[in-house]
């Protein structure tokens, strides 16, 4: 009979582990990082988010759009915490197509915090044409759209190898990456030492750049992560208290009929 409880435990354990077992291909173990946003009380490292935004704008944004984000998000609670003034300045530096005006023409104007991030290409076809047929994916929810999440993106950024292993042939415009599925990637190695100059004096090593931009991308795909974990913790504490109380009430109630048996 004690099978039964094992079965139940097994049930939970088993079902919850299935999503991990999908990718049956042999894959390089990801470079696991300890992220500030991991764990029960995880929070984003603000400075890292701000640096990550800098990396995004100076490097990634020349090919990758982030069209689900708006400039105002940069000053919202739980994000990079730029001040509203800073966001106005950031937004005003981009040109946004607006209109039509009273003459029926589209016109360009400086961006406002309520504008969406401006995309580097007008549409997917233009993006493909400019990138040798490959479409640089939109990065708004990229971290959630890849198995392995933040660790995976970090690993891909760090996983370029100058010389592919023997036996692997690369066509023109294709690069070898240890962690990319299929090991072939059309994006040239994007980050290297000092590809961005940090204003806060942080040394812009490849690891640091990758870590910062991944932190930024994680926030971008899960902007309410901090609120979720905070509310989650409160809810768990609350439920534990209520569960204990209800258990005591239940015990009291059932005591009433015990003598009858």
């Amino acid at each position: 009979m004690s099978y039964l409880s094992k079965f139940l435990l097994f049930f939970f354990f088993f079902t919850f582990n299935i999503p991990n077992s999908y990718s049956a291909e042999k894959q390089e173990k990801l470079l696991k990082q300890s992220w500030s946003f991991d764990g029960f009380f995880g929070k984003f490292d603000r400075a890292s988010l701000q640096r990550g935004y800098q990396v995004y704008t100076e490097v990634c944004a020349s090919c990758h759009s982030m069209n689900l984000l708006s400039y105002r998000n940069l000053s919202e609670v739980g994000g990079p915490s730029f001040s509203e003034e800073e966001v106005k300045v950031i937004a005003s530096k981009v040109e946004v197509l607006d209109g039509p005006n009273d003459n029926g023409e589209m016109f360009k104007r400086p961006g406002k915090p309520s504008d969406k991030f401006v995309s580097p290409f007008a549409n997917e076809k233009a993006a493909r044409a400019a990138n040798g047929g490959a479409y640089p994916p939109d990065m708004s929810v990229l971290v959630k759209a890849r198995a392995g999440g933040a660790d995976y993106i970090y690993s891909v950024l760090m996983g370029y190898e100058n010389k592919p292993p023997k036996g692997v042939k690369l066509e023109d415009g294709v690069y070898y990456n240890k962690y990319m599925s299929g090991n072939k990637i059309k994006m040239p190695k994007p980050l290297s030492q000092d590809s961005v100059k940090y204003s806060d004096g942080t040394a812009a090593t490849e690891e640091q750049l990758s870590k910062d931009v991944v932190t930024f991308l994680t926030w971008a795909s899960e902007p309410h992560l901090e609120a979720r974990k905070r509310i989650g913790f409160k809810t768990v504490v609350y439920l534990l208290i209520l569960t204990v109380l209800v258990y005591l009430v239940k015990k009291k109630i059932w005591l009433r009929i015990e003598p009858k048996v």
């Binding site: 029960f40 974990k229 509310i231 989650g232 809810t235 768990v236 439920l239 569960t243």
Partner: peptide, 9 residues
């Protein structure tokens, strides 16, 4: 409780 743990974390 199990639901909240999964949903929130």
């Amino acid at each position: 409780l199990a639901f909240v743990l999964i949903t929130m974390y």
